[in-house]
């Protein structure tokens, strides 16, 4: 056990050399809102939701190595307001229709939005036109919900060793693409058992022929907030068993 420590919102957090602020905070049970971070994959700092202040400077907690004796601000109004604005932008960039979405109640984007108190999108919706890819026999991809977190890209690359997914384009034209001759998932070597199939924090990856099988009231985030429940890909099982 390392003796190195930092302080986050007044709480003393131990860390090992090389750990990020996010890793150390999660290990200590301190929740920092995030979407693109998954401890199984290298962090990229895409979503910027884990923005914290390290000794007064903005950093992304998932990429910033912890610094001994530093002061980290996480749950302060200034940062939460910026997180809320980031989420509001994510909601209007895609087509996130929670009332009809199969992932409602077990969607990390929705759960984080509730957590930071985002009650309306605020900005004008873009309503982009994005087609469904239903060409694969086991999985539908609904690009309407993609937030370009890149988790499926990283999982397919490092865990599945398939490199099926990539982010293509720049700026507002950025989009998730499939590495196959037709650009369709059905023409790739994707399998519903791939790690990439279960890391999406939103509702892009939808198993075929299944929907709404978990009743309202029993879904992942129905009873407790995400800070207690954990991520979609890594729910806090110990807590679930209580």
């Amino acid at each position: 056990m390392s003796n190195s420590r930092f302080v986050i919102d007044g709480k003393d957090i131990p860390f090992r050399p090389g750990q990020t602020i996010m890793d150390a905070a999660m290990a200590a049970g301190v929740y920092i809102p995030h979407l693109c971070h998954n401890p199984d994959y290298a962090s990229t700092g895409n979503c910027r939701l884990c923005l914290v202040k390290l000794n007064g400077r903005y950093v992304s907690a998932c990429t910033q190595p912890a610094i001994a004796d530093s002061q980290v601000d996480n749950q302060i109004d200034e940062i939460n307001q910026q997180r809320k604005t980031l989420l509001q932008m994510l909601f209007v960039e895609g087509n996130h229709q929670c009332p009809g979405c199969e992932k409602s109640g077990r969607c990390q984007l929705q759960a984080v939005a509730y957590y930071v108190g985002m009650l309306s999108p605020y900005f004008t919706h873009f309503y982009p036109r994005r087609e469904l890819d239903a060409s694969h026999p086991e999985m539908v991809l609904d690009f309407n919900r993609c937030i370009l977190c890149g988790l499926c890209v990283r999982a397919s690359h490092s865990a599945d060793k398939k490199n099926i997914f990539a982010i293509s384009g720049r700026g507002m034209d950025s989009r998730l693409v499939i590495n196959s001759t037709s650009g369709k998932l059905g023409d790739s070597n994707f399998s519903a058992h791939d790690a990439a199939a279960s890391v999406c924090p939103v509702g892009v990856f939808l198993p075929k022929h299944k929907g709404y099988e978990v009743p309202i009231g029993q879904r992942l985030y129905d009873r407790e907030p995400i800070a207690q429940v954990g991520d979609v890909a890594h729910p806090n099982h110990q807590r679930d068993k209580k």
């Binding site: 009332p99 009809g100 199969e102 469904l132 239903a134 939808l206 075929k208 299944k210 929907g211 709404y212």
Partner: peptide, 14 residues
């Protein structure tokens, strides 16, 4: 049109 069929009971009730 263009949505997966298993969404219909929840979508259309809106």
């Amino acid at each position: 049109q263009g949505r997966p069929y298993w969404e219909l009971p929840v979508l259309v009730q809106r």
